[in-house]
Design a protein around this nucleic acid. Structure first.
Lengths: 359, 359
DNA sequence: CTGTTAGCGCTTTCAC
DNA sequence: GTGAAAGCGCTAACAG
């Protein structure tokens, strides 16, 4: 039946997958026609009957096209890279979900990379994504303020862009790409305003690692809000902590030992707030919000289930993921212009904040 | 300099990326040698000097190899697919983290797909992953018990395997692949045993959607444990709920309205337990664990922060992700034998459970 | 509308 | 140890 595949040099390597050629042969058409029938060849229309035959052959053979081969021929893939710190971290999980939803919408596959806050790993993954010829990268990575790191990050991204890739950051990463900006500063200001209105004047801050952009911006917001009210934040009222529950716990303990006069604690993320809450309640026996009010940041899903329910700043993380992907897909705007989508924070008041106790 | 790229038919499509040919030319060697120098050509050793020259040229040109092209030539990629319901769900987030950690270890890239519990989407992604020529798939998807779905799932996976792919499931998906088995049944039994020992005899169950394998197994564990103690679970003591906080809240309300004599509630996941806790405490005013004890399942990170801290069954989710990836990588065992790694559950007792109140 | 054919970038024989 | 060349599976000119 003239179905001789011919001599094969690399024969053994064949993964056994059905090829377009086989489909074409079976349908009795040329490979070009098969391609056009299956993947809609660039304006070209295929005769209805041939088309049907090709589709039937493909179905019978259980043909699935070879994306790497298509990528090679078309010089473009349909995969986008997503860089996060850790998907298990609800913050990044939410962003990732947004990206996934949008990707499904636009028919893109997403290649996930997690840096676990290791700078080298993050850098390496970036070239790995370039290697994969990802069409774009959504960078929601670690976010270090470290200048040298930022520089190398920029280099890597530049290389990626040179190859024709697009990049969108979620949050500030110190690189001049399209970005979905999260209003960390503004959110922090809102939180402070809220506490201030409740009469709090002695506010402590549990900051995360100062090397993270997010922390820097949130802390900055606190400072600004306080300065504007004529009560600049003293250095002793800020503790740097690990960005975790345990970090928050330890920091709360340290902070209140040092500054027992505090009436409010602002933890710069919900994880630390949860730890602080537990420390205050179980170890220090301080009523929240009776004796000290607590505010968190992020409004993770469990914030309402903390005890007491946590007042916190809500960040539209999932939406940020969606927007980032959209920035990447949407090529309308001229390349070369940096696009920035600003997303707003919103204070969610629950039960962990109340009037400052009378002096 | 004889660097004429020659006539190009597809010229405009070139993404501008540097190619191996360019590196070879610059290093003054053949493309074959460049390939071997860069990617260690199959036993072949390259002269040290040439090797150095190639590496230098590659560095100068900022060369990054083209994975799709390599995939085509080698007939294999270094990507594995990961199917989850939703990464923002802590359960899947934990599994995903495990997979990511292991993938980094083995130098694999992971392509993430999220079905959001839509059967068709899950099925489609499976062919998409085949299309990408993923080398393997870690299936931690929705987990429907639905027979027809399972069948189609099996079909799709079979196709994937035919092409030479490997598959590992996390949890039972009704398909006979290598799997990392989670002890849902055993965990549920432990929870019941715990309650029983505390004197609870009237236990209500807040089940998730009965169409999910996980739910079925956990419920089954409850039934078995109770039967073994001569107190079979009456149908009225089980409510099917959405697998969420809201679902748990509603179910708790319904359950206690119907069966006020219950002294314990077992929610088949932590999210529902959180909702139940809130409903019991805030809406029904029933003391936990004084009047009714509550047990959850999964031991998500926030379980200890619920109020009261939740007694729950811990599942080694991250480890499950790691193991699944290992099953895929580890080809020692003969193909054809189904391998099953059993992971144990462990009850974590906290403050939401206590002695049953005196009758 | 269909078929032929030249690549896409890389790996791997096969000869030297 | 090195190079030439034949593909890998597919797309897109180009010619009919």
């Amino acid at each position: 039946m003239a179905n001789d595949p011919g001599p094969r040099r690399h024969s053994d390597r064949s993964s056994g997958a059905v090829t377009l050629q086989q489909v074409a042969t079976r349908a009795g058409v040329s490979i070009a026609t098969a391609s056009r029938a299956l993947h809609g060849g660039h304006g070209r229309v295929v005769n209805e009957e041939l088309r049907t035959r090709v589709l039937a052959a493909a179905a019978e053979l259980n043909y699935v096209s070879n994306a790497p081969a298509q990528a090679l021929a078309r010089a473009r893939t349909s995969v986008v890279g997503l860089m996060v710190h850790d998907v298990a971290d609800p913050y990044f999980g939410a962003i990732a979900t947004g990206v996934m939803r949008a990707a499904a919408e636009y028919d893109l596959m997403v290649m996930l990379t997690a840096s676990f806050r290791e700078q080298q790993l993050e850098l390496d993954y970036l070239v790995r994504l370039r290697n994969q010829r990802a069409r774009a990268i959504v960078l929601a990575g670690s976010g270090f303020t470290d200048g040298e790191f930022t520089e190398r990050l920029a280099e890597r991204l530049a290389g990626f862009v040179e190859d024709g890739g697009r990049v969108a950051c979620v949050g500030d990463h110190g690189v001049a790409t399209d970005t979905v900006a999260l209003d960390n500063r503004g959110g922090a200001e809102q939180a402070v305003a809220h506490l201030w209105e409740l009469g709090h004047r002695r506010i402590g801050v549990i900051a995360g690692p100062l090397g993270l952009v997010t922390v820097r911006d949130r802390l900055d917001g606190v400072r600004r809000a306080l300065e504007r009210r004529g009560a600049p934040l003293p250095a002793e009222r800020v503790v740097e902590a690990d960005f975790t529950r345990a970090g928050g716990r330890a920091a709360a303990l340290a902070l209140l030992a040092r500054q027992p006069e505090l009436t409010a604690v602002f933890a710069l993320n919900d994880g630390m707030a949860a730890g602080a809450l537990a420390a205050l309640r179980d170890e220090l026996g301080l009523a929240v919000p009776g004796r000290v009010s607590v505010v968190g940041f992020d409004d993770l899903p469990y914030a309402a289930d903390l005890h007491p329910a946590l007042t916190t700043v809500r960040l539209p993380l999932e939406k940020a993921g969606v927007r980032a992907l959209e920035l990447i897909v949407d090529d309308r705007d001229a390349r070369g212009t940096r696009r920035i989508v600003e997303l707003e924070s919103e204070l969610t008041v629950r039960s962990s904040t109340g009037p400052a106790p009378a002096p």
